[in-house]
């Protein structure tokens, strides 16, 4: 099922004042589409996802926006109804399986708890389905895993269990929050291959949050580049990677290490988001800064079919291509 996110704004009350973590984020995840959200740490990726799923802690509030999923607005929905969608219609893959899984409950109990939160099934049936699902995610001895605890598993195995839990109720959308950052590099590819294969096989949609451009390049159809709680650029992966329009997207792509080349880094750091931000948030680090960038927040506009960018520049003319840079 498709997800349409429009103008989400989320703020947190902290001891240091109000933090505007997400400042009007919009994007779409179409049917059967794999979308990657990329951005630095603190760019609001996770907060955006948590806002959509109703997982914002009490110190945070969603001040505006909609997230339409199968015709229903997840933001406006009562928390009780949203709970029934989470886990059943939207599967969630956590970043660190050992932080997510319950350490003192047998995995069979955790499968039961998740399934029973949504369906009336007896224990035997849940066990049968869980064993089948563990087989699908490449666990060879599902009986043993199911009767054991999370800490008895390797990182890759534990993440497979989390994937199995996410897919147990056959969700139409899978949300993965940095699904491989906590894993060994050698395991990362296996897990990503597994997730994307399972999602594509079932013709489901997926939203992957990552700071790894390689993940986006290899597994996603479309990429959403976020910075300071705003979408900077949104477009098909192949096109954005070949010719990024936004200076920030360009800088991100240039900072990917390449063999035989000196690593290009982006100077400066994320601005503080204590007040309602005005103007372009990237301006302090942007080599193309203009007067207008200080005053006017650039809207996310469609520059060519399927490609959106929020920048005052005439991006097709003025932003250099990756190769020329």
């Amino acid at each position: 099922m498709s997800l349409h996110v429009r103008d989400i704004e989320t703020r947190f009350r902290t001891t240091a004042g109000e933090v505007h973590a997400v400042n009007g984020v919009s994007f779409d995840v179409g049917d059967g589409e794999l979308v990657g959200i990329v951005g630095e740490s603190g760019s609001g990726k996770s907060v955006t996802i948590n806002s959509i799923l109703g997982l914002i802690r009490t110190s945070g509030t969603i001040t505006s926006g909609t997230a339409t999923f199968g015709g229903r607005d997840l933001i406006a929905m009562r928390s009780r109804d949203l709970r029934k969608i989470r886990g059943a219609e939207i599967g969630f893959i956590a970043q660190n399986p050992f932080g997510a899984l319950n350490p003192v409950l047998r995995l069979s109990r955790q499968f039961e708890n998740v399934v029973r939160a949504h369906r009336r099934l007896d224990r035997k049936e849940i066990r049968r389905q869980a064993l089948a699902m563990l087989g699908h995610v490449g666990i060879h001895q599902p009986e043993r895993v199911l009767d054991g605890y999370a800490h008895e598993l390797s990182g890759g195995m534990a993440q497979r269990v989390v994937i199995a839990l996410a897919l147990m109720l056959d969700p139409t959308l899978v949300v993965a929050d940095e699904p491989t950052t906590a894993l060994d590099v050698t395991v990362q590819k296996q897990i990503l291959d597994l997730i994307s294969t399972l999602v594509r096989e079932r013709e489901r949609s997926m939203l992957i949050i990552t700071h790894d451009l390689g993940v986006v390049a290899n597994y996603c159809d479309r990429v959403v580049v976020m910075y300071c709680g705003r979408v900077m650029e949104d477009g098909p992966v192949r096109e954005v990677f070949r010719r990024p329009y936004h200076p920030y997207a360009l800088a991100l792509l240039r900072s990917v290490p390449r063999a035989g080349q000196a690593l290009q880094t982006l100077g400066g750091r994320l601005p503080k988001l204590n007040a309602q931000p005005v103007g372009c948030l990237f301006r302090d680090r942007c080599p193309y800064r203009m007067d207008v960038c200080d005053r006017v927040t650039p809207p996310l506009r469609e520059v060519s079919p399927g490609r959106k960018v929020s920048c005052h520049l005439d991006v097709e003319q003025e932003v250099p291509t990756l190769v020329a840079g």
């Binding site: 709970r83 989470r86 969630f92 956590a94 899984l101 939160a117």
Partner: peptide, 9 residues
């Protein structure tokens, strides 16, 4: 957070 993301009551 994960328990909630799984839709547990």
């Amino acid at each position: 957070q994960y328990a909630r993301a799984c839709g547990l009551s």
